[in-house]
């Protein structure tokens, strides 16, 4: 996972590159949370441009990060999900609560 932290805007961007399923989720969760806790950003951007596959475990991952980020008074943005991932996100309530670009 690549990450960039923009100090000026206190914005943390994480670029996910793997297939997101239940098997990869556990490791992803602790890595993402590690970065969020380290930088305590005002905005966290999850870049999904290079994620070719995601199932409902990815939805759980996004929902969980959303709760953590909300607790830290920050906001979560998703960037570049493919059409199937967009469809999955829209099926859940989380689609209405987070910004998707």
């Amino acid at each position: 996972m690549k990450y960039t932290y923009d100090k000026e805007n206190e914005s943390l961007k994480l670029e996910l590159i793997e297939e997101i399923d239940m098997n990869s989720c556990k490791a992803l969760r602790s890595i993402i949370d590690g970065y969020i806790i380290k930088y305590n950003p005002k905005e966290c951007i999850l870049d999904l441009n290079k994620v070719s596959f995601m199932d409902s475990s990815g939805l759980g991952l996004i929902m969980g990060r959303h709760s953590l980020i909300k607790m830290l008074n920050a906001k979560l943005t998703l960037v570049g999900p493919n059409e199937s991932i967009k469809k999955i996100i829209k099926l859940s309530h989380i689609g209405k609560e987070i910004r998707i670009i």
Binding site: G60, K87, S92, H93
Partner: peptide, 22 residues
Amino acid sequence: TPGYTTKPELEHAGMGFTIMET
């Protein structure tokens, strides 16, 4: 049922069957 899961503590979304149906 969409959103129902027996394992919320593991951050399961409970959307598996909904996705299969969709």
